[in-house]
Amino acid sequence: MAALSSGGEVPVAFQDPDYLAAVVDLLGVISYGEISAFERLAEDAKLAPTLEDKVELATMASLELGKVQALHERVRELGADPFGAMSPFRAAIDQFHAHTAPSDWLEGLVKAFVGDGLANDFYREIAAYLDPATRDLVVASLEEGHSAFIVGRVRAAIEADPRSGGRLALWGRRLMGEALTQAQRVAAERDALTALLAGGVDRPGLDLAAIARMFTRLTERHAARMAELGLDS
């Protein structure tokens, strides 16, 4: 594989084959995550209580799918096949969604907000160790534009039925546990992603203390999202 800039020069980072493989892996897992989010939101739309809610979720689903093209274009620029890049992550992501299938409309909303938010936070943390062009692409693909809708619907539901708050809080904690397990499984199975966090000749890396701080930040952001929904973390 070869990664070329618009001027035809190979950036220093991409002269490292391990870094190149890691970037392809990262773009692959994010791409398949977006496709899975599209499928899940489209399915959740069937549970929507109103037509307005159905359209809102369908719009969210289309936005997720729309992010995939730019990611795939970047993978091709790097000399790889985007579908081959996604393939290694299909089983782990599908398993996560199988283990966290929502039982109703509200659980689906919490999953879209909390579960996807946690994954996006993790990828943003990794993006800090990428070359600028790839980092900007990854960050752009993780933009969340539906938080106000979800927060409003969940808070209104809890106000109408306060008992639902406890159930949804437990659901949010389960989502975090499953998401962290999935992230660890993916990293363990893909040596290139693990090596990415170790740094390179032109990039800083993470030591054990830095990794611990990263997971602390992920936990704190999860708690903030739960609080935004009106739930205990």
Results as ranks from 00 to 15, higher is better:
residue 2 A to Q: 05
residue 2 A to T: 13
residue 4 L to W: 13
residue 6 S to I: 14
residue 7 G to F: 14
residue 7 G to Q: 12
residue 21 A to D: 02
residue 21 A to E: 02
residue 22 A to V: 08
residue 23 V to T: 12
residue 25 D to Y: 05
residue 25 D to P: 00
residue 29 V to E: 02
residue 29 V to W: 06
residue 40 R to M: 15
residue 42 A to P: 02
residue 43 E to S: 15
residue 44 D to I: 13
residue 44 D to N: 15
residue 45 A to I: 02
residue 48 A to S: 11
residue 58 A to H: 09
residue 59 T to R: 11
residue 62 S to H: 01
residue 63 L to V: 10
residue 71 L to N: 04
residue 71 L to M: 10
residue 75 V to N: 02
residue 77 E to F: 09
residue 85 A to C: 05
residue 85 A to V: 02
residue 86 M to R: 04
residue 89 F to P: 01
residue 93 I to F: 07
residue 95 Q to V: 03
residue 97 H to N: 13
residue 97 H to A: 13
residue 98 A to F: 12
residue 99 H to L: 14
residue 105 W to R: 11
residue 107 E to V: 02
residue 107 E to T: 09
residue 109 L to M: 11
residue 113 F to A: 11
residue 117 G to V: 03
residue 123 Y to R: 10
residue 126 I to F: 06
residue 127 A to W: 03
residue 128 A to P: 01
residue 128 A to W: 04
residue 131 D to G: 11
residue 136 D to C: 04
residue 139 V to C: 07
residue 141 S to C: 12
residue 141 S to P: 03
residue 142 L to F: 05
residue 143 E to K: 13
residue 147 S to G: 10
residue 149 F to R: 05
residue 151 V to D: 02
residue 152 G to W: 03
residue 153 R to C: 09
residue 162 P to N: 05
residue 162 P to M: 08
residue 169 A to R: 09
residue 170 L to G: 12
residue 176 M to I: 10
residue 177 G to W: 02
residue 184 Q to T: 11
residue 188 A to K: 08
residue 190 R to Q: 12
residue 195 A to T: 08
residue 199 G to I: 01
residue 203 R to P: 01
residue 207 D to A: 05
residue 207 D to R: 10
residue 209 A to S: 10
residue 214 M to I: 14
residue 219 T to V: 14
residue 221 R to K: 14
residue 224 A to G: 07
residue 228 E to G: 12
residue 230 G to W: 00
residue 230 G to Y: 00
residue 233 S to L: 01
